[in-house]
Amino acid sequence: MDWLFLDAAFTGGSRDECSAKAGGACWAVIGERLNLFTYGFYPVAERWRVNLSLVLLIFTLFPILFEKAPYRKYALHIAVAFPFVTAWLLVGGLGLTPVETDQFGGFMLTLVIGITGIGFSLPIGILLALGRQSKLPAIQIFSIGFIEFIRGVPLITLLFVASTMLNYFLPPGVTFDLLLRVLIMVTLFASAYMAEVIRGGLQAIPKGQFEAADSMGLHYWSAMRLIVLPQAIKISIPGIVNTFIGLYKDTTLVIIIGLLDPLGIGRASLADTRWTGLSTEVYLFVAIFFFISCFGMARYSQHLEKKLETDHKR
């Protein structure tokens, strides 16, 4: 505690200035590099776009996460536009100055990869889980093959494939943005895990529920959407959030293919001669950021489980 706060130096231009002031932690490094940690190498003049995206994110998530949010019905419809608007804001074009995706970095990069992965892996995972139980052989074989292949390969391998191998398969001259490739790979990776988590939930649904739905004349998709999936997903919430958290933390692996996530920025900061040897402070700071996000997800999952509890076990 003393080291963290009381004896810590919060300002200074280098490590030496810090230790001259106090014997504890030297948080000045974080202060000086905060913008780098947040935005990566995103052009300074365009950083308002990142901030605006974050505001949009909060306004989109709020009605999705909380049932009591005002105007929830309309907000949910507008939320569909969020990925497109944000992608436009961050990448540019169509009136905005284009920003190369290799300038993305820091927490912003973590959020872009994490939220894209989380947002797309759930629906894809649900489809794969249903596909795996499908009576149509082609769909079933595809789903099983996809899930088992992706689960059988480490994420890092997939990321390497994304960063190098795809170029061999694409016709020469066709460039395919590296970040986009990473997003696709991370999403597919998480989808395979998601599919298995949801399949567990599906198998916990008693056969009578399917029979009751069938006997009413509900179509397959209505029965799934209205009866089976709400129950299966509710059972799977702990596993789903577990996968989300795993995915979110796995975004740090992109450092290996040269994208600068917070850890990458941290390493770069430590390479600066003025700040060498402050690895504890830098990594602690990054760890706190991840802990806050992941703990938030975990708490929300508990809240959701309580809210959806309709069993009233007596």
């Binding site: 009578g208 529920q209 029979e211 009751a212 009866i227 959806l308 069993d311």
Partner: peptide, 14 residues
């Protein structure tokens, strides 16, 4: 056109 009532009710718990 055909309704069915089951031994174990099969109501939708959610």
């Amino acid at each position: 056109e055909v309704g069915m009532v089951f031994q174990h009710f099969n109501l939708f718990p959610h």
